[in-house]
Amino acid sequence: MNRINSLLAGVLSSRWMKALAVVGMAGVAEAQGGNRWAPFPPASDFGHRFSELFWLITILCSISMVIVVLLLLIPLLRDRARPGHKANYDHGSSLHDKRLTAVISLATFIVLDAWVLAIAMKDLREAYWNMPEVDQAETYPIEVLGQQWAWHFRGPGLDGEFGTPDDILEMNQLTIPKGRPVSFQMTSKDVIHSLFLPEMRTKKDVNPGSINKTWFKPIEAGEFTILCAELCGYAHYQMFGNLTVMEQEDFDEWEESASLLGIAAYDPEDEEAQWAWEWEE
């Protein structure tokens, strides 16, 4: 199994796959004067896994669709009813036909589904399901509270603890460091929302009544997008924010000043602001 996996990984990381992904994303995006036909380039490790899988499925599906269209077009052009022309009397129930049906279906399953499945499983085990341990030096934790219609983010601040006066509170704006896993714990005040970070190629529902977890590793610094992907009422379409990914040095500086600002603005009377929970391991 491992050998197959490494073989697959080899094919996928080959130069033509990469070239294709570049043409598919960046090339088309720049055309048409700001009008794009593709997402902005991926800015997280998930993003690259997504692109590889997406283009593999696209190639396989395109080939399948071309075959289906050909098999529709050929009879359409060749076998139209006309005087003197007869249909082939064939129930397709011979042993040969049955074998052919089985072989073609299974072959398609293996090429189309099993291949994709194998890579998807590998990605899931290595990345999506593989939640990082939270230790302050490496993983940066964030608590998210969704509400109609705003995103609240809480960083632990300098003491590394949630629910303390030095927490960093942001609204519709999230600031995180580059190159480190960022771990999210999320819940909602009212209805279901879904934290959608298109450039990070990730998304997770934010449910009331329970804490949902996700993580990713940003590998590009810059300004990115936060959207809500689950219908949450009247202003669902306006529930967006900004994601800032900073280089580690810039982030350290920012974290310190934001944490100090947090302490200055801390008001124990303000119940609305006390929504933190104990970080769940």
Partner: peptide
């Protein structure tokens, strides 16, 4: 597979 095979070498009334 079977739908496409039904069309194949038929006498198609479109």
């Amino acid at each position: 597979f079977n739908w496409l095979h039904t069309l194949w070498k038929g006498n198609l009334r479109l």
